[in-house]
């Protein structure tokens, strides 16, 4: 199995030489097609990790390699989704989903001529996340959960090899969140995309991921790596099994300890 993401001994400091050290000696690897989750105490540099992998920040020390390439500028093979769906209110949902295609070098020149093909693809994605027929609605006509589904479609439209999710379900109610866990689980299974999920929700991490990274308090580094043993496809039912709860409890303990140390 080749690694899609390799991070080696990375230091990232904000605001010059005297600034805060956000991550230090960070090392982690994510294999192609894998679903990785990153958990840790708040302010541990999880969002910094997102920006390092996508090339929005370049580290002062160490190397970040994505898809065999040294990351020195933004890598367009990545799709991103945040807790805030940030859909543009003057565009319909469908036009919002097509937005990355107007940016990514590979697609922007083909978009006008092959509009039909791309629209069909967007509508297929909408169907996958359960938003069939909502493409012509404006984002503010959708509920929070529906906006987040559309946000996932936007992150996937340019067929990224890597999907980076920064607490995408943090602002949703418990039931909608579980529904979207299943959506993302099915997307992962269907599209074979590599996913890195940054989250506070340990059950979310345990339910979705193949591998869970536990980060320390600032400056962030990887404390432990857990392989999640549950077979796929997973059902929401597994959250009531003892093994699942043991894993969640163990994660909880490690993060609580990391907080105390800090």
């Amino acid at each position: 199995m080749s690694h899609l993401v390799s991070i080696d001994d990375v230091d990232m400091r904000y605001g010059g030489a005297e600034g805060t050290l956000a991550v230090s000696q960070l090392t982690m690897r994510v294999a192609k097609g894998e679903f990785a989750a990153v958990v840790g105490p708040s302010g541990c540099g999880k969002s910094t990790l997102m920006k390092l992998v996508t090339g929005l920040h370049i580290p002062q020390a160490g190397t970040v390699i994505v898809a065999g390439q040294h990351v020195t500028k933004p890598v367009s093979i990545v799709g991103m989704a945040f807790q805030n769906p940030t859909l543009l209110p003057w565009r319909t949902t469908l036009e919002n989903i097509l937005l990355p295609l107007e940016i990514v070098e590979k697609h922007r020149h083909r978009l006008r001529a092959n509009k039909k093909e791309y629209v069909a693809k967007a509508e297929h994605l909408l169907e996958l996340v359960g938003l069939k027929g909502f493409g012509s609605k404006f984002p503010w006509q959708l509920s929070g959960g529906m906006q987040q589904r559309a946000n996932l479609c936007r992150a996937l439209i340019h067929e990224p090899e890597l999907l980076m999710l920064d607490e995408p379900f943090g602002a949703l109610d418990a039931f909608t969140r579980e529904e979207l866990w299943c959506v993302i689980r099915d997307l992962h299974a269907a599209q074979g995309v590599t996913i890195v999920l940054v989250t506070h929700d340990l059950r979310e991490a345990a339910f979705l991921a193949d591998k869970i990274f536990v980060m320390s308090a600032r400056p962030g580094r990887i404390l432990r790596e857990h392989l999640v043993p549950f077979a796929r496809p997973r059902d929401l039912e597994i959250m009531y099994h003892t093994e699942f709860n043991d894993l969640v409890q163990q994660l909880h303990g490690e993060i609580a300890q990391a907080r105390v140390v800090a």
Binding site: L56, K73, P74, M80, A81, L88, W90, L99, P100, I103
Partner: peptide
């Protein structure tokens, strides 16, 4: 919103792209 900018910049958007697609419609 910084998130919007991040999403677009991660896709390789230049400053002019962000202005045309987001900044100008947003300031209207």
């Amino acid at each position: 919103e910084p998130e919007t900018e991040d999403v677009l910049r991660a896709l390789g958007a230049r400053k002019i792209d962000i202005m045309l697609k987001v900044g100008i419609p947003r300031s209207m």
